[in-house]
Nucleic acid binder design. Sequence first.
DNA 1: GCCAACGTTGGC
DNA 2: GCCAACGTTGGC
Length: 639
Amino acid sequence: MAEDWQDCPALGPGWKRREAFRKSGASCGRSDIYYQSPTGDKIRSKVELTRYLGPACDLTLFDFRQGILCYPAPKTHPVTVPRKQKKKPSKPAKAKKRQVGPQKSEVRKETPRDGSKAGSGTAPASLPAPGCCENCGIHFSWDGIRRQRLKALCRDCRAQRIAFNREQRMFRRVGCGECTACLVKEDCGTCSICRLQLPHEVASGLFCKCEQRRCLRIVEKSRGCGVCRGCRTQEDCGRCRACLRPSRPGVKRQWRCMQRRCFWHFAHRFHGHPQGCHRCPPQVVVSPTGKRKCRKSGSKVAAQHHSQAQPLPPLPAAQQPQRTELHISDLAPTSPAEFIYYCVDEDELQPYTNHRQNRKCGACAACLRRMDCGHCDFCCDKPKFGGSNQKRQKCRWRQCLQFAMKRLLPSTGSGSEEGVVSPPRHSCRKRLGSPRQLRVSPSLKAPLAVLTAPPGPAQASAKQQAGRDSVLPPPDTDLVFLREGASSPLQVPGPAAASSEAPLQEAQCSAQSWAVTLPQVKQEKADAPEEWAADTAFLTSPTSQPGCPSKAVHTDLVPVKQEPPGPEEDREENREDYISASTPEEETGGVGTPVITEIFSLGGTRLRDAAAWLPRLHKLLAVNENEYFTELQLKEVVL
DNA sequence: GCCAACGTTGGC
DNA sequence: GCCAACGTTGGC
């Protein structure tokens, strides 16, 4: 896309403008205008531009869409006269009709970029210290590339590389269609893929393609392109981190000098990110249980082909997969130990829906929540809260819980039909369930399930509500027990007097006092299909009620009191063992991820074991009603 | 496989 | 026109 950028002298040297036409969706054909500052910052609207340039810069005359300055025409002459010149900073910034996060935003924008934007009223930015492109060697502004990238590539080279990667993915999926391998119509029958004896339609599919039919234009990492600067470099530089990396005794050096790595190194190795993982969207791999898996993770079992697997009907000649024709049950192996992972076009498994709306059930408390909490990391990222708009995600407290549950329980379809749109059955595309929705605190991977009443600024009452109906997460803690309908955390939860803020739909499950939800992504990836089946069995145990989404609900659970901010020693201990009291900040939806659901992942504990340890947990809870539990205690219970 | 970043699109 | 946030992708 780099070629789409065009200079925009109206904003000064180095500014670029791009018009992007929407290629799909309801607004297909519509165009959006983006600007890029000399330092590489992307501007998406005039408001952002105003914010970016600061109040000293008057954009009144600047036509954002056209990228030109429009001076007021004579009264009788409506035609604007574009001029290519710097705008005048003399006039104070026009008050926007809608100032979003005015002060914070300005502070935020100016703080990190003061250097580049000081005096940017007309000609923005002193250029940052240049870097040297690893590929072409030219000097360029490194500052424009904000990510933590190892390769220092200039914009053009990076664009080339990205284009190359994109092309390579396409080659891997469908091939170039021109090389001799792509023209081969028959499988060899002898390669490792063919020997798996996968159904023909699968074997002739994309990533499972016969080795003899794999596109020859795929650049193998081990070979490199042979042409780029990296491939042509014969000697190690001796200075890069690879060269400096100490080799293990007795082990041949594994690290190739950074300077000798192929510029085109395909970022996703074929077997590293095959179709099925979230990096490879067009294809998914589906286990017979319905859990989609990245082939990488499923490769072991994939190698164990079950000869009795029922072949799928042949694909139409047009190679269009038969939508909705594929049923997971058709693929069920006769032995639980044996699984076959099929390449299935994702569209086969989900009829067309508006994907962008599939993340909302519209019914859960999170969906019903109107206000951003203003404190979670995603809120903090929002411009209106002074963020830099990099994450661009919905407030964590507003991320659909139903969707999360669906993702977590791919094979569980019960109990969610009541006016709830079933979220799409997405593959292991993580983004869909998204760590954004449910993220495990990296500092503590041990907690039990958590549900919290979302805190937030929106509710003075909500805060109280949170205090009443739930136990808020202590710092660095993923453990929160939500109690419904209770007047205080100390009471044994009674019938749900569902708080409108109570997450999930426990509110609908009047008999359920506690809700325990599944771990999100990390658990998902770790679980084997059979474990999911077990999980599901547990989660859909008779304790669940019709109308309730599938989730672990244990009626025997006794409430746990969340201590108020405790003594200092407790806080210290929290780092190690304790799930301690929450800080005031977190009580309002604070810095810590406001975890919606978490986790049964104590040391790899599976939900399937829950039947065994839940009673123990129950006992512990009963004994320690007013206490917190150490991670150690929880481990003892669960493990 | 995870995550941050960001292009893109929906909707107000 | 603008913002929200979904979904993709590069880096690791």
